[in-house]
Simulated assay, not measured.
Amino acid sequence: MSSWRTINISPRERAARVAVGALGIIGGIVLLTGAGSVLAVALEVLLVLAGADLLITGALGHCPLYARLGHVPATLKGRSS
């Protein structure tokens, strides 16, 4: 199985990533509605994008950075997914 399909995020971290990512997306969108400057808009768009990254990696269970670094959580060692 190719490395992009392997689950390399523990179940607890996955849940946390999904929750924090959803909050980031919602918070960024709420803040965007009242943005007053170009800098504020840029920062809020970055917040939404960071939230989307966390939400997607949490939902899929795969972090490309973890894969490149060879990181495997202790709870997943010895498991083939």
Results as ranks from 00 to 15, higher is better:
1 M>L: 14
1 M>Q: 12
1 M>P: 13
2 S>N: 13
2 S>W: 10
2 S>H: 10
2 S>I: 11
2 S>L: 13
2 S>E: 10
3 S>H: 11
3 S>F: 12
4 W>G: 12
6 T>M: 09
6 T>F: 08
6 T>V: 15
7 I>S: 10
8 N>Y: 08
8 N>T: 09
8 N>E: 10
8 N>H: 10
10 S>I: 08
10 S>F: 03
10 S>T: 14
11 P>N: 02
12 R>F: 11
13 E>H: 04
13 E>D: 06
13 E>T: 15
13 E>W: 04
13 E>K: 11
16 A>K: 03
17 R>G: 07
18 V>E: 03
20 V>T: 12
20 V>K: 01
21 G>W: 04
22 A>E: 09
23 L>M: 14
26 I>Y: 13
26 I>M: 15
26 I>K: 02
26 I>D: 12
27 G>C: 12
27 G>P: 00
28 G>W: 13
32 L>P: 01
32 L>T: 04
33 T>Q: 04
34 G>V: 02
34 G>A: 03
34 G>M: 01
34 G>P: 00
35 A>F: 01
35 A>V: 02
35 A>W: 01
35 A>M: 04
36 G>F: 00
36 G>W: 02
37 S>I: 03
37 S>E: 08
39 L>R: 00
39 L>N: 04
40 A>I: 01
41 V>M: 10
41 V>S: 09
42 A>F: 14
42 A>Q: 06
42 A>H: 05
43 L>W: 11
43 L>S: 03
44 E>D: 14
45 V>D: 07
45 V>Q: 07
45 V>K: 08
48 V>Y: 10
49 L>Y: 06
50 A>Q: 09
50 A>I: 04
50 A>V: 03
51 G>Y: 05
52 A>V: 10
52 A>C: 11
53 D>R: 01
55 L>M: 14
59 A>F: 09
59 A>Y: 11
59 A>D: 06
60 L>Y: 06
60 L>A: 12
60 L>D: 04
60 L>H: 06
60 L>K: 07
62 H>L: 12
62 H>S: 15
62 H>Y: 12
62 H>N: 15
63 C>V: 03
63 C>Q: 05
65 L>R: 06
66 Y>M: 03
67 A>H: 11
67 A>P: 06
68 R>N: 08
69 L>E: 07
70 G>T: 01
70 G>R: 06
70 G>E: 11
71 H>K: 07
71 H>S: 05
71 H>L: 12
71 H>D: 05
73 P>D: 02
75 T>L: 00
75 T>W: 02
76 L>Y: 05
76 L>D: 02
77 K>E: 07
78 G>L: 05
78 G>M: 09
78 G>T: 13
78 G>Q: 12
79 R>C: 08
80 S>P: 04
81 S>L: 15
81 S>C: 13
